[in-house]
Design a protein around this nucleic acid. Structure first.
Lengths: 197, 197
DNA sequence: CGGCACCTTGACTGGTTGGTCAGGTCTGCT
DNA sequence: AGCAGACCTGACCAACCAGTCAAGGTGCCG
């Protein structure tokens, strides 16, 4: 049985943990920092989660579905070009709206995904394999140009997540402007040209 | 005056530090780990470098030139499409040959580039601004299609570095094969189509 | 081969950090 | 109101970690 207080505090803690983990990485984050952001005491954090590791795991598990949803949502019966471009647009929107989540995953993968491997397991691979098949069918149908489906998916990840993960670098260069200004238009053009049969 | 032993040990230490920092991030790396990889004692490390921070700074400073060289090497008087594609190819090769360096920078930028800001300063911005001007000229000359020069550069970074930085994820999906198999062909096609006037 | 500068290290320190615990406070139910 | 169980915390601990130091070892010069 979960109480109202439990629900509220767990939410507050995970929110704070996302803030700190995404900005500092797992090793770099401290319970004191998370406690400070959450406005709770450190022992209280550990009343709700068994360990720092458990918070991190809970975060990743909660976010995994959200993170993969855009890829899952690609409709095999839709028009190839529209579906892929819609996928790209959804991912780009996630970089804009959920940059902390993007950086959390990036931090994790960058360090070899030790805490992610068992969570994802073959799940991600299966999803990507399935959608690669779908893309292959669109190629066969002549709906899109013949490009490697895996590299196509990787390039969507790379191009969209870059704006969240490397935000600091982009800000150094495009001082003033919103770092993502013009990104949608640019990527729209890029994928239009790439996929044109 | 630097002795032979000094040169050798500094090199060994930076090599080990690159290994550990790129895999664990600054905060995640410990001097004991670096000492272990280097085959030296921890106090000995601190005989050659004032602090952990100093090792990290030395690494970044040493690598910065290497890292920006490909962008600097873009020849304003060359053919636009060839120059940009050559830049992309050089960056992709760096992802293949220097993945640790790529991950070191990625780790740094991901966490807001605190230790990089003063090192790069306006230097990177100036270089990118200059090369963006060069690209604009190629567009005016009709050598390449009209695309936003900044997003073009960002997309080259994103697409090439992704293979080094997200290697762990790609390996989960493309089990067996070399993660970068087919990447060059794919990116060649992508930029061909994108830049086609 | 003797001496001096350079190199190396075991043992230590002070500060940080994840996690524990005993006891106190609050909340919701009857 | 009263109580049982949920919630919260100050004080504490053990492990870890960057950095110090004094003392001994090593290479290089005359």
């Amino acid at each position: 049985m979960t109480t109202r207080i439990q629900r509220r505090n767990r939410r507050v803690i995970l929110e704070a943990a996302l803030d700190v983990f995404s900005a500092q990485g797992f090793r770099g984050a401290t319970l004191d920092q998370i406690a400070g952001v959450a406005g709770l005491s450190k022992p209280n954090l550990l009343y709700y989660f068994d360990s720092k590791e458990a918070m991190h795991r809970a975060l990743l598990a909660d976010l995994l579905d959200t993170w993969l949803a855009p890829l899952r949502a690609m409709n095999p019966d839709g028009n190839g070009r529209d579906e892929i471009k819609a996928y790209m647009r959804r991912k780009l929107q996630m970089s804009r709206e959920l940059p902390r989540e993007s950086r959390l995953f990036a931090n994790e993968v960058l360090q070899g995904a030790p805490r992610l491997a068992d969570l994802i397991g073959g799940d991600l691979k299966r999803l990507v394999d399935d959608q690669a098949q779908v893309i292959r069918r669109w190629i066969t149908n002549g709906q899109i140009a013949a490009v490697d489906p895996y590299h196509l998916i990787f390039s969507i990840w790379a191009l969209t997540q870059h704006y969240a993960d490397f935000d600091a670098q982009i800000r150094m260069i495009r001082t003033g402007a919103d770092p993502m200004d013009g990104a949608e238009t640019y990527l729209e053009t890029l994928f239009d040209k790439l996929l044109q049969p």
